[in-house]
Design a binder for these strands. Structure first.
Ligand SMILES: [Mn+2]
Ligand SMILES: [Mn+2]
Ligand SMILES: [Zn+2]
Ligand SMILES: [Zn+2]
Lengths: 140, 140
DNA sequence: GTCAAGTTTTGGACTCAGTCCAATTTATTG
DNA sequence: CAATAAATTGGACTGAGTCCAAAACTTGAC
């Protein structure tokens, strides 16, 4: 039995071709948009509806199988690396997204100067900058 | 002469009723959406087009008069507090958004564990949690 | 293996936030 | 005040995501 099948079973999620294909697509696409994942899935199983992509990604995020990040000015990205509270570094020019380890590890990794009585569960950090490739292009 | 008029003049921005009204609306609305600001403007000068709202807010952000923040799952928010690199704390339940001072001050306030060769210009931090009011409601 | 019950998938309509565009109006400069 | 450049307008349009009802599945019990 496939690893992914087992993973779904242990989470009590019915096993479907679409869900297995999404799981597979995520492995190929470290930080993919819903659309990119849909394309990847289609290249493997022929077709999938937009709604199934969103259903699947959404429920996987809820179940903790996936993580969703929503950078400003970009559609949401999905990734399989969960549970380690890492952060992201995004190129303003080309959108290239790379993982940045969190020095602290556990969420929330930062303490707010004044928490205004909120109960904080996460400190989301996105580093913005220019990637090596785009640095070359812009300085030319 | 009004303060806002002076501000626009010193930035070489032609003074229009719409731009003055947007500036005024921002003062009433610490972290408002484009739509909220448009409503505030309409209540003062009668009407403004959607496009003018976006033109004005966009160019003010470019000129450094305003700051735009784009939290996951919400339209962009605009604020007049610029130049101090503060962060934000947002309630997952009701969206209430409050300022959090940055301990470091200057951008980028955090150093990435591994920068992958990027030149980082900003570390954007959003704290997510539950505000005092929503804490009461959910524990009930 | 078959069946019933409950889920999932589908496609198509729809919403929301934002952008594009051409025509009209307005601010600035001389 | 007139000329010029810039801003404003409304309306069409886009992209990302959601809503909905019908059809197709997966599962669990027999
Ligand atoms: Mn990641
Ligand atoms: Mn703020
Ligand atoms: Zn780049
Ligand atoms: Zn709240």
């Amino acid at each position: 039995m496939f690893e992914s099948t087992k993973l779904l079973r242990t989470h009590g999620i019915p096993v479907t071709a679409q869900r297995l294909a999404v799981l597979r697509a995520i492995r190929e696409q470290p930080h993919g948009t819903a659309e990119a994942i849909a394309e990847e899935v289609r290249s493997k199983i022929g077709s999938i509806s937009k709604q199934s992509i969103y259903n699947t990604l959404g429920s996987f995020v809820e179940k903790g199988l996936l993580r969703r990040i929503q950078p400003a000015g970009s559609p949401a990205l999905y990734e399989g690396r969960v549970g380690d509270n890492h952060h992201h570094l995004i190129c303003r020019a080309c959108g290239k997204t790379v993982d940045v380890d969190c020095a602290v590890g556990k969420k929330p990794c930062l303490t707010a100067a004044n928490d205004a009585g909120f109960v904080i569960d996460e400190a989301e950090v996105i580093y913005w900058g220019t990637c090596p490739a785009c640095l070359v292009t812009t300085t030319k």
